[in-house]
Design a protein around this nucleic acid. Structure first.
Lengths: 201, 201
DNA sequence: TACCTTTGCCTAGAGATATTAGGCAAACAG
DNA sequence: CTGTTTGCCTAATATCTCTAGGCAAAGGTA
């Protein structure tokens, strides 16, 4: 039986491409096998199971995204870097919806994460971007989380058709970045926890 | 054959409960049927197919969420209303992860949306909450989108284990709300689109 | 080059899920 | 009570996931 020359890397890349075409949730071992002209059972020579395949796609996507962001922010600081970071993030998600979805849908095993540098890279990129705002802990972490939330949330709502108003989505995005920049420059002083909530902690 | 007394509403509610227990993506007609002690084929007397079931869960969840938010913001204004809105949002998502996931995972048919009031209610709740900040269009829409993005993004990243730092997630949330309130009170004046981006439009 | 080992493909099969069609009897309506 | 509706079932089909074992291509070694 002639070999199709498959490797785990080739299989993963094909899965990622297919995810971008049909949606990450629609990736099946069967569909992927068909795209290579082999039987589905043959793919298990290269990936352990569907979960392994999904994890590989998620890691591939996270790495690509970090690369995109790193390239975009290189040589920039302050608002320019923040905007470049955010745009790289969103542009990647828009260009590769299936890959991007994988980064969120797959909860990676701690052991898998430990073997990858992508998580540490992402944290470092975020902190480097925020450096110009001179935030100190715990504000640095709080701000980082809010930024990531806003970016991810915007992209997700956009992708899910959540912005039905006639206002141009692109323009709202730009205005949101203006607002976030203003906020980062004026991060509010630490306030005590709300009283009622304080008792809840 | 004795009837189990199923109705589309009962089936939907059970699916939503199961979603909260095992995750929305793990909801299957088979599992649901087993939970009722009937054969899977029997459920098709009550829902058209799996997609119909998922849509029903999404609509149920969206309605519950809107109810929660409406109750939380009643009689409040300004920062208090914004915080109440945000907390109701997040509390619902935390208490009902499967239901919440349904609101995002299911893209509802425009015809389905037209028959439901939940979308209009959500928009109205958001605008009422923002009223105290006296934003005018297009700032009102921009700000609304940013808020929803931040809320949704935060909840999603949190649920997906995206906040690994030791900083208490609850405290970051509170600080994020402080920041968003400050931003809403000081929403930046309209700026021209970035030059390079302007050419892209 | 020849021979042995590894491994990537296949088939066969089992289990799970989604769904349709038709039958039967419970439930409903008059 | 009788006729009609419909909610359950079985049977069947299609698709997906995955395991086990066989065979031959590919790789490695002498």
């Amino acid at each position: 039986m002639a070999r199709a020359g498959l490797t785990p890397e080739r299989v993963t890349e094909a899965a990622a491409d297919l995810a971008d075409a049909v949606g990450f949730e629609n990736i099946t071992v069967s569909a992927l096998a068909r795209s290579f002209g082999v039987k589905d059972a043959s793919l298990y020579s290269h990936v352990r199971n569907l979960r392994d395949l999904r994890e590989r796609v998620a890691l591939l996507a996270a790495g690509e995204l970090a690369d995109r962001i790193a390239a975009a922010v290189a040589g920039r600081a302050g608002k320019e870097a923040m905007v470049a970071f955010a745009n790289a993030y969103r542009d990647y998600a828009l260009a590769h919806p299936g890959r991007y979805a994988a980064t969120q849908a797959v909860q990676l095993d701690p052991a898998v994460l430990a073997r990858s540098t992508v998580h540490a890279r992402t944290v470092e990129l975020t902190h480097a971007m925020l450096r110009a705002y001179r935030l100190v802990e715990p504000d640095l972490t709080d701000a980082g989380r809010l930024l990531r939330s806003a970016f991810h949330g915007y992209i997700t709502l956009e992708a899910n058709g959540g912005f039905s108003h006639s206002r141009a989505v692109r323009r709202s995005w730009e205005r949101a970045l203006d607002g976030l920049h203003l906020l980062l420059e004026n991060w509010p002083a630490e306030s005590p926890p709300p009283a009622a909530e304080g008792q809840r902690r």
